[in-house]
C-alpha cells in the first residue's frame, strides 16, 4: 500500500513531551533519593550499572537470566500457540479444558514455586518453567479467542474450494489470527522475563533476580537499582519492537 495518511503536525511536540516526561521522572527520582535511603540517586545508579556491565560475574548473571527468559518465551509461544489453536478449533476441547485454563490463569503463579522446585531443580529448569507459566496464558487465550472469532464464511470458503489442512492453515487460519497472536507474543515476552526473574529471587545460583536480592541484602542500593533499570529497559525495548510489528499487520 502506497497511500499515505496525512499526519497531524504533532511529531515534534510529542517528542518534546516525551523528553519532558523523562526529565521529570529523573528529577522526581533525585528528590525521592533524598527522602529514602533505599532509593539511590540517579547518577550513582548509572555509575553502578556502567560498572556492572563490565563486570564478568554480572555478565554471567545477565546471560543466565536472558537465556532462561528466551527459552521460557519460546516455549510459551509454542505451547501457548498450539494449545490455543486446539482449544479454538474444538468446541469439545474448550468445554472440557477451559475450566483448567481459567483456574491456572487465575492462580498467582508464584505459589506453585514450592511444587516446581523439587521437580525441576535449582538451575535453569524451575526458572524456565516459571517463565513459561507466566508467558503461556496470554498467547493461549489470545490465540484461542482469535480462532473462535474467524468468520464462519472463511471456513465454508476453504471447504468449497477443497483446501487441505495445511492450505487452510496457511491461507486462512494463520493470517486471520496474526493480530491476536502478536498481541499474545508481545505480552509473553515481558511476562516470561518477569517469571524468570521472580523465581531467581527464591533459589538459584546465578541470575539478575539474584543480583537484585543480594544487592538489597548487602545494602548496595545503586547496584540493585541499576539492575532493575536494566530489566525494565530490556522488557521495554522488546515490547516496543513487537508493538510496532503488531501495528504494521493491522
Amino acid at each position: 500500500m502506497t497511500a499515505t495518511v496525512s499526519q497531524p503536525p504533532a511529531g515534534g511536540r510529542v517528542l518534546a513531551g516525551s523528553v519532558g516526561v523523562a526529565v521529570a521522572a529523573v528529577v522526581l527520582w533525585e528528590i525521592g533519593s533524598h527522602l529514602s535511603f533505599v532509593i539511590p540517586p540517579p547518577l550513582d545508579t548509572a555509575r553502578a550499572l556502567a560498572a556492572d556491565l563490565t563486570d564478568a560475574l554480572f555478565l554471567v548473571n545477565l546471560r543466565e537470566t536472558m537465556l532462561a527468559a528466551t527459552a521460557a518465551f519460546l516455549l510459551s509461544a509454542a505451547i501457548g500457540g498450539l494449545i490455543g489453536l486446539g482449544l479454538g478449533l474444538s468446541r469439545v476441547a474448550r468445554l472440557l479444558l477451559s475450566p483448567i485454563v481459567t483456574a491456572m490463569n487465575g492462580v498467582p503463579k508464584i505459589v506453585l514455586y514450592p511444587i516446581l522446585l523439587p521437580v525441576f531443580h535449582l538451575g535453569y529448569g524451575s526458572k524456565i518453567v516459571m517463565g513459561v507459566l507466566f508467558g503461556l496464558f496470554p498467547v493461549l487465550i489470545n490465540v484461542m479467542t482469535g480462532v473462535q472469532q474467524i468468520p464462519s464464511v472463511y471456513w465454508r470458503l476453504a471447504r468449497s474450494v477443497r483446501a487441505g489442512r495445511w492450505q487452510t492453515l496457511r491461507h486462512i487460519l494463520l493470517p486471520a489470527i496474526r493480530g491476536p497472536l502478536l498481541t499474545g507474543v508481545r505480552l509473553a515476552i515481558s511476562l516470561s522475563l518477569v517469571g524468570v526473574v521472580l523465581s531467581e529471587f527464591f533459589a538459584t545460583k546465578y541470575g539478575l533476580g539474584r543480583v537484585v536480592l543480594r544487592s538489597y541484602s548487602a545494602g548496595d542500593y545503586p547496584n540493585m537499582m541499576g539492575t532493575i533499570l536494566l530489566l525494565i529497559a530490556v522488557s521495554f525495548v522488546l515490547s516496543l519492537l513487537l508493538w510496532r510489528m503488531e501495528r504494521r499487520v493491522r
Binding site: 464464511v153 465454508r156 493470517p175
Partner: peptide, 10 residues
Amino acid sequence: FQEDSTLPWK
C-alpha cells in the same frame, strides 16, 4: 456466499 468472503490480508 452472502457474507463478505474476501480475505482482508490478501
